[in-house]
Design a protein around this nucleic acid. Sequence first.
DNA 1: CTGAAAGCGCTTACAG
DNA 2: CTGAAAGCGCTTACAG
Lengths: 345, 345
Amino acid sequence: MEDNRGIPARKNATLKDVAEACGLSVAAVSRYLNHSIKLPQSTTDRIDAAIAALNYRPNPHARSLSLGRSETIGLVVPDIANPYFAHLAAAVEQAAAEYGLGLLLCPTLSRTDRELDYLGRLSRQHVDGLLFVTNNGDDPALARALLGAKTVVLVDDDIDGTTAPTIMADSEQGGRLATALLIEQGHRSLAYVGGPQGLSSSRSRLRGFRRAIAESGQTIAIAAELHGPYSSAHGRIAAEQLLALDPVPTALFAASDEIALGVLSVFKQRGVKVGVDISVIAFDDVGPLELFDPPLTAIRQPVNAMGRRAVQIVLALINGEALLPATELLPVELIIRNSVKPPNR
Amino acid sequence: MEDNRGIPARKNATLKDVAEACGLSVAAVSRYLNHSIKLPQSTTDRIDAAIAALNYRPNPHARSLSLGRSETIGLVVPDIANPYFAHLAAAVEQAAAEYGLGLLLCPTLSRTDRELDYLGRLSRQHVDGLLFVTNNGDDPALARALLGAKTVVLVDDDIDGTTAPTIMADSEQGGRLATALLIEQGHRSLAYVGGPQGLSSSRSRLRGFRRAIAESGQTIAIAAELHGPYSSAHGRIAAEQLLALDPVPTALFAASDEIALGVLSVFKQRGVKVGVDISVIAFDDVGPLELFDPPLTAIRQPVNAMGRRAVQIVLALINGEALLPATELLPVELIIRNSVKPPNR
DNA sequence: CTGAAAGCGCTTACAG
DNA sequence: CTGAAAGCGCTTACAG
């Protein structure tokens, strides 16, 4: 029993130190720690005491090397500064921690080379699994690289030509709900300001948009269907385009919060009153939309549920459990605020 | 030379495989890879070819175990879903990647036990260094644990009684700039809605607030100095308190974006017009404040510079370089928008 | 059940 | 300069 208060340990205790301290073999202690052995209470007490006295904690690298896994997963996202991904990361980390997994952050800035690089880390067992969010789902090189990866779950979007399990929000239903609200409020000239044309998430939101129109039984003009990155820059460009239209549509559905931000900033700048001159509904609902001018109506993505579910599935994959259904769609929710009003023309 | 297109490698190539493939010892290849040897061009070509053919990549755990370091740092933050920390994480990750360091995400939800746990991971060499953001800087247990940690840099706030290098924004200057703007616009009754009283960041912002008042040469009433967590919940409570005052102050300085969000939501709910009934200035400037109603004036923290600088310093610490000045203050910036106007009473 | 020993895949002090 | 070998700290198949 050593007295080590205050003084930083000269050297970390190893399993060997613990074993010696209580007169056992390292194997016995290791087995005890990994719950693969049953020992008499008196012995386990001795081990616990030695661990406490020596302040022993296993070296994770030795463990990883020996085990061939790291008990760490990676979260591959385009940009962690984006509030949507930040929320996703928080949800993922929390779920991962509950399952004893560490989380390595892998932001790609949407660069395919970085995405491939992180996939490489997976095969080197740097991480045991990867939660993969990409805006390059239409890149064949990515799809090819993904084929060899057995413990990847796609989040938020799928990738053409892969069979990896996928967790997504029900984007089509979201697009449908959003558009139905616009129609219900009386709008008859609508625009879709979408994400990248190649991405399934944006295609689904567009499908929902069209479907709500078809289902309405009304004569609705589709003033525009615009595509581009899920960015505020794209939102700004789209807003300019819409304002140049004649007539300007009376309502628009923006496929992400970020796009809506860009749209709103142009409208604000040009004096276009949201909810009066034009109604706007967004998709994601992660920003402080309730504080916007006016508070923004949006479709809320189930970020927490998606993060948690993705962790569960990657863990099942890591443990070699039976294949799960290829794609899971999680329900979205309509959050009504003040940016959708009946048209005033 | 193997043909492995399409087929996932049966097993990852090791250094031994590479060495055998080109008739060298593992030591030679290892040294070459670590740049601690000079080999003839013909030899290095052979090695490079073998590495490419076998698709060799070093096993990071073996390397870490052998080296006693992991080339990974951890970022300890209260909550990654908070936009301020999300931006910080993005900046840190980018800088870390440039220096070849991985980034492990360590969110604490401000729980001291989790903070201590992450500190433990550091001593187990799970990570080589830690960038540490905490709201518990006044907790003596934390300070004690930090004493033994040689490769920690404190970010954003310091911890009482530690000597760890610290990177912070110049909060006092920020508080001073913010308050000076309010005074300059004619306000004579001000409130400070601050962060936790025990935290140096909030104390500094308060110091700046008082200093600007003292320096103004005007007679200024300090209507309130409120303290609480850097959260929107605290902002909401504070807003209620301020509105209950008689007279209500004509302007307030909120010590974080989050606090401002809470304040604004109460004001919105109660019909208090920001910029008309009361002026508001925030601190952080990471949210889309320009889209708020009205666009929010704020002090901008140099998040990118802080993240980058913190990585540089932790790296210097890891490399055992000479101690650097204890605390670095990075300059803040006043971003004028529309939430501060002259008082109308 | 238990322990001695091999093995995970690297790095590097040491001897040639 | 170069290679054989030890060592990093675990886990676990194997033999007792």
